[in-house]
Simulated assay, not measured.
Amino acid sequence: MIYYEVLCYSCKQKFRLYEGSLKYKQFKKNGNGIFCCEDCSHKIRMDAIKNFFRYSK
């Protein structure tokens, strides 16, 4: 399977982008882009959802 190893901008650890995924396609288009791993992506998304409901009252 083809993949790229990319550095996560949040936790600074290497992770793999496998062929066929959306992030893989984005990396091929823009190799200088900022990418984060699945764990960090999930944490960022959950924090955004919590903050949305906290300030939407």
Rank of each mutant, 00 (worst) to 15 (best):
M1G: 09
M1A: 12
I2H: 05
I2A: 04
Y3T: 06
Y4N: 14
Y4T: 01
Y4V: 04
Y4H: 15
E5Q: 13
E5M: 05
E5D: 12
E5L: 14
V6E: 07
V6G: 03
L7C: 04
L7F: 06
C8H: 10
C8R: 11
Y9V: 14
Y9Q: 14
S10V: 14
S10R: 12
S10W: 01
C11F: 13
K12D: 10
K12C: 01
K12Y: 15
Q13T: 12
K14R: 12
K14S: 12
K14C: 05
K14V: 01
F15S: 02
R16A: 10
R16S: 11
L17G: 02
L17M: 14
L17V: 12
L17I: 04
Y18N: 07
E19V: 00
E19C: 08
E19W: 01
G20P: 06
G20T: 00
G20W: 02
S21R: 07
S21K: 03
L22R: 12
L22D: 13
K23A: 09
K23W: 04
Y24S: 11
Y24E: 12
Y24G: 08
Y24T: 01
Y24I: 09
Y24K: 01
K25T: 14
K25W: 03
K25C: 05
Q26P: 01
F27Q: 04
F27E: 10
F27D: 03
K28P: 05
K28C: 15
K29M: 11
K29R: 15
K29S: 14
K29Y: 09
K29T: 07
K29H: 10
N30L: 00
N30W: 07
N30G: 00
N30H: 01
N32H: 02
N32T: 00
G33V: 01
G33F: 04
G33P: 02
G33W: 02
F35G: 03
F35C: 03
F35H: 03
C36G: 03
C36H: 05
C36D: 00
C36R: 12
C37R: 13
C37F: 11
C37T: 14
C37L: 07
E38G: 01
E38P: 08
E38T: 10
E38I: 09
D39F: 10
S41Y: 14
S41C: 06
S41F: 09
H42R: 15
H42N: 08
K43W: 03
I44N: 08
I44K: 08
I44T: 03
I44S: 05
I44R: 05
I44C: 00
R45T: 04
R45V: 02
R45Y: 11
R45K: 07
R45C: 06
R45S: 13
M46L: 09
D47P: 00
D47H: 10
D47N: 10
A48W: 02
I49F: 11
I49Y: 10
I49A: 07
K50D: 07
K50T: 08
K50G: 01
N51R: 15
N51L: 14
F52T: 02
F52A: 11
F52W: 06
F52E: 03
F53W: 14
F53P: 00
F53L: 11
F53V: 02
F53Q: 05
R54Y: 10
R54E: 10
R54Q: 11
Y55G: 02
Y55I: 05
Y55S: 05
S56L: 04
S56I: 03
S56V: 04
S56T: 01
S56K: 08
K57N: 13
K57I: 06
K57P: 09
K57W: 04
